[in-house]
Write a protein that binds this DNA or RNA. Sequence first.
DNA 1: GTATCAGTAGAGCGTTCTTTTCAGCCTGGA
DNA 2: TCCAGGCTGAAAAGAACGCTCTACTGATAC
Lengths: 188, 188
Amino acid sequence: MPATRERIIRAASRLMQRQGYDGTGIKQISQEARATLGSVYHFFPGGKQELALAAISRGDQEFVEVLRAGLAGDPDPARAVVVLTRNLVESLRASDWVDGCPITTTALGTVGRLPDIQSAAADAFARWRGIVFDRLLESGVGESDARDLAHTVISTLEGAELAAQVSRSSRPLEVAGQHLSRLIASYR
Amino acid sequence: MPATRERIIRAASRLMQRQGYDGTGIKQISQEARATLGSVYHFFPGGKQELALAAISRGDQEFVEVLRAGLAGDPDPARAVVVLTRNLVESLRASDWVDGCPITTTALGTVGRLPDIQSAAADAFARWRGIVFDRLLESGVGESDARDLAHTVISTLEGAELAAQVSRSSRPLEVAGQHLSRLIASYR
DNA sequence: GTATCAGTAGAGCGTTCTTTTCAGCCTGGA
DNA sequence: TCCAGGCTGAAAAGAACGCTCTACTGATAC
């Protein structure tokens, strides 16, 4: 059994991923983490906001791993992106279409209201784009093209995952994979 | 001054667009709409869920108009999609990046929890894809390609709008417009 | 043995939430 | 002129919210 603080972060991350910031109560987090309210406030004296920041940071790391693993799935980035979308479909289906992007729901529900959370999410997005950018660069794509492509790869993955969740279908992600592949290939 | 029911729908739609389902209180809706709680429950005896369904339906219609207007902005669909993203950037910037897709925040925060809302959102997404599909079809794109492209156009727009909001930047949407344009052009 | 301190436990604060209730106010038709 | 019914206004019930507080446990340091 992991340490208390770790369990709290995991619970906060998972619950906010599914239900967003306002939809997740601290009491619910403490129950899911098998910790008491006292423990939660001991480790996170900043309250719900600090909890959300920790959850986003954790979600950020998780998606970095998913991204790296997927993009390493094929030497050709145009094919690797298809591997990536397939992986996303798999884990999405495994959770009955509930566990989408680890930070989108939290970030979207607090846009314009909680600047700290928003900027943490913006940093995460930038980091993910950086990973795609690096991968494209090392495959010979020009710097400017790679930067733009990184934007669209992340945006499209986000949107397709969202659409897949809402419609409970793998179709949006599969099609997105094919089209991103075609788009990347057109720059080589 | 519009009728009470209309004001309530508008307020619910706008507030849920920004704050999501859980982040929006019925009291807040009634205040924003300049109606009393009694009026809200008179017109929407189904409570918050019925309110959310009405808000999604309204948001659906709004985005249909945005989509039609944008796609009619150029005879070539590959260029029309750029007009569309430009329009989205404009209205996003005008709201200081808080008014994104009218239904995404509501839908995402309730996925797997409130099936009625989720399926209403799924219907809206399908309708939007239908509009893009029709536009591509009449421009000579093959039926199968048009169907797939419609998926990716909507997914990418959603994701790019989301990314633009989170990072308070027009860049994701602008780049998405360029890439979608290139992708569509490659099918003609 | 005792002092110290991180961590656990949960009662309870004030506030806000959704929902219900119901008496009154208008207003259009008889 | 009257009245029925659509609509409004205010209040409150009951639950849930974020957060604070004090008391307790157990391990380590001296």
